[in-house]
């Protein structure tokens, strides 16, 4: 349940609970807190305090948690994607991505699921998640890949790349590839060199998307669309492979 919904609910108290339920509840409180009646349990605390106790599905940074002057991220409005792959093409052209050996910076995945007895085709755009705790950056022996201190984007210094491919093995998102022209590992960098440096406000993939699936922007900027989307109440937001602890900056939602 959403916190705001929870706040609007009237507290029913415990008077209507059967005796057995109360006993069970007290035992649980004892077990959880280790102190008789000392532990606070979600249903009896105010919703504001409860927020601390609900494990958030997604780590969205809040004020004071942004380590970079700008903190770029992307929202994928997944159900809008029709799999036209204009983003893939736009990225290839803008960033001169070679055409073979599995080279791509962004891709559209698809799958067919059965919903209410009918086949349903889903599309999902993927790219580098520009993680806050990027495994690729940690493992690189020569700091050839690093978080850009101004934007938080994970970038490459091709001259330093020894081609050990540890970053490829470490990436939870299969976001890295061997660039045969640069003879180094390459990846999506939110068009930092090809568009952002020229004053553009969007990445190539976001700019060409006809369905406005991809919303790129500064997570810190309260006036930005990405901020509005991520902080809209009642919005279900998810990230890919949260279990890896990489804290990605690409968020998924429907809408």
């Amino acid at each position: 349940m959403n916190i705001e919904d929870l706040e609007r609910e009237n507290n029913e108290g415990i008077a209507t609970l059967p005796l057995q339920e109360r006993r069970k509840f007290l035992k649980m409180g004892l077990a959880v807190s280790g102190v008789f009646l000392g532990g606070s349990v979600l249903s009896l605390t105010s919703a504001v305090h409860a927020a601390d106790q609900i494990a958030p599905e997604v780590d969205i940074p809040t004020d004071g948690q942004y380590p970079y002057p700008k903190h770029y991220g992307m929202v994928m409005r997944q159900n809008r994607c029709v799999g036209c792959e204009k983003c893939v093409e736009g990225c290839k052209q803008t960033n001169h991505v070679p055409d073979d050996h599995g080279a791509y910076r962004t891709a559209i995945q698809s799958r067919v699921t059965i919903e209410d007895g009918a086949e349903k085709r889903e599309f999902r755009p993927v790219l580098c998640n520009q993680c806050n705790r990027p495994p690729c950056v940690r493992v690189c022996p020569t700091k050839a890949t690093y978080k850009d201190p101004a934007t938080g984007i994970v970038v490459m210094d091709y001259d330093k790349c020894i081609g050990c491919k540890t970053c490829m093995a470490a990436c939870p998102y299969n976001a890295r590839y061997f660039n045969e022209e640069k003879y180094a590992i390459d990846k999506c960098n939110f068009c930092i060199d090809t568009r952002l440096a020229a004053g553009e406000k969007e990445t190539a993939c976001a700019a060409v998307c006809p369905a406005r699936v991809r919303i790129f922007g500064d997570l810190k900027d309260k006036t930005s669309e990405i901020y509005r989307l991520l902080h809209t109440p009642d919005t279900k937001i998810w990230v890919l492979r949260p279990d890896t602890g990489a804290l990605p900056n690409v968020f998924y939602m429907n809408g």
Binding site: P141, T142, K143, K160, I162, C164, K165, A184
Partner: peptide, 14 residues
Amino acid sequence: IASPHRMLIYNIIS
């Protein structure tokens, strides 16, 4: 390793 010559340099200076 694709570029061992870079390793010899940047393992030391970076």
